[in-house]
Amino acid sequence: MIRLTRRAAIAGATLAPFAVARAQGNWPDKPVRLVVPFTPGGSTDILARAMGQRLGEIFNQPFIVDNRPGAGGTVGSEQVYRAAPDGLTLMMGHIGTLACNPALYPNLTFDTARFVPVALVANVANFLVVTNGLAARDVQALIALAKSKPGELTYGSGGNGSAAHIAMVAFNEATGTEMTHVPYRGTGPMLTDLIGGTIQLTMTGGPPALPPVRAGQLRALGISSLERLPSANDIPTVASQGVQGFEALQWYGIVAPPGTPPAIVARLNEACNRTLGEAPFRARLESEGAVADPMTPAQFGDYIARERDRWGTLIRRNNVSLG
């Protein structure tokens, strides 16, 4: 069953006495920095701002989104990794920073597996969108066009090794097509060029993709989940259009520096999952093609490990490079 429809049960945790006292005491007694290791405008940024606003209301302290882009998210990730483990620095991680980057950056000076998982926020189906000037009106027409012009169609992403890049690598592999990757320094600039016709297509998350689709600036050919989304029920899945079993979800969740006390993690997880259970917040996510998927920290950690294995294998098999 597709994970977009799953709701994990929320379990309690056994907390060390010192951590309990600290978490139930003054934390957070200062503003919390929520690092987004990418430029503004992409799915990570959009979801971080939505969750940060609600967490700030719950804890009565600002959760300040801090964009720290660079090197496929590794710059911001390393800053969070080396930050004090006091619960005042967090990161909105995602499939790229937590699952793909270990394979893409074999010489990283920090171990992404040591981030402390806090809460999975949402799964986001990728939208396969094309410029209005492209003749293809469905997935099979796009495949036929790409095969008739190997390497001539160009797809954009937020950068080498980004989630959109890896999703298109998976699409090319599944369909036997060859399209040329054009990396940008962020999803926002890429979408601007896509709307302008500089590139022909992309496969990116719903939060940045849906607004230009709804405005008629781009055309959506399919989504990368196995089931249609309630918020975009008019858009068929890629899998239903002859690419059997195709699924390439982005996912987003909060992690903390190694050593962050379990009690602080538990309080954050409880607040995040409480937020994900609120109908207005779920509706806000769904309106942007994102689906809430609450997990315990342990469940989230297991999920990250499985995804790291899956996408790392794809990256190595296709010799994906950052050059």
Rank of each mutant, 00 (worst) to 15 (best):
G188L: 07
Q217V: 02
P208Y: 01
P208E: 01
G222S: 12
A220I: 04
P207W: 03
L210D: 01
G222Y: 05
L210A: 09
T198P: 04
G188Q: 05
P212G: 05
D193V: 09
G222P: 13
Q200S: 14
L221F: 06
A215R: 11
I199R: 05
G216W: 11
G188K: 13
A215Q: 14
I195R: 09
Q217C: 02
Q200V: 05
R214I: 12
G206W: 11
V213R: 00
G196A: 14
R185K: 12
A220F: 01
A209I: 14
G216F: 05
P208W: 00
T192D: 08
T204K: 02
L191Q: 08
I199A: 06
P212C: 01
I223V: 15
P189L: 00
R219M: 03
G188D: 09
L194D: 07
R214G: 07
G188S: 11
G206N: 14
I195D: 07
L218E: 07
R219T: 05
R219E: 07
G222V: 15
P208D: 06
T192M: 05
A220Y: 09
G222K: 12
T192E: 10
Q217S: 10
T198V: 15
A209C: 15
R219W: 01
P207L: 05
G196Q: 13
T202Y: 03
M203Q: 15
A220R: 08
G205T: 11
G222E: 09
L218T: 02
P189Q: 09
I195H: 10
D193R: 14
L218S: 06
I199V: 15
G216H: 09
G186R: 08
P211N: 12
G196I: 03
P208L: 06
Q200A: 15
